[in-house]
Design a protein around this nucleic acid. Structure first.
Length: 102
DNA sequence: ATGATGACCCGGA
DNA sequence: ATCCGGGCCATCA
């Protein structure tokens, strides 16, 4: 009875990310809420940053509360536009139209 | 062990 | 719109 954090946390976060429909985006805070940890939005980012070590997940569909895409990850914009998520400008998606309602 | 950092959020000024 | 401070927790140096 130890380590309830790490594995189960990663599992829950990635499960939610996996549910984000194509053509939609979710915010870190939104995901945090969905796993019952509304104050741990920061942790969601930490886990997602290393998500590649656990498998293939659509982590490009996750943006921050303002709709800004990940700084430095230029490929993300391309991936989003390919599935129909249009940008407001170079750094922000149009959250109003494409945020996953859940 | 500690202290800083970060793909964050929210409320207040 | 900006700037600031508090909260949260895994990772990193």
């Amino acid at each position: 009875m130890k380590k309830i954090l790490d594995e189960s946390l990663v599992y829950e976060i990635l499960s939610v990310v996996e549910e984000i429909p194509e053509g939609n985006v979710a915010t870190y805070g939104q995901i945090a809420r969905l796993i019952g940890r509304d104050k741990n939005s920061r942790l969601v980012g930490t886990v997602l940053r290393r998500a590649g070590l656990y498998g293939e997940y659509p982590c490009h569909r996750v943006v921050n509360h303002a709709g800004r895409i990940v700084p430095g990850w230029t490929e993300q914009r391309y991936l989003l536009e390919q599935e129909g998520v249009s940008m407001k400008n170079d750094t922000h998606v149009d959250l109003k139209r494409f945020q996953w309602d859940c």
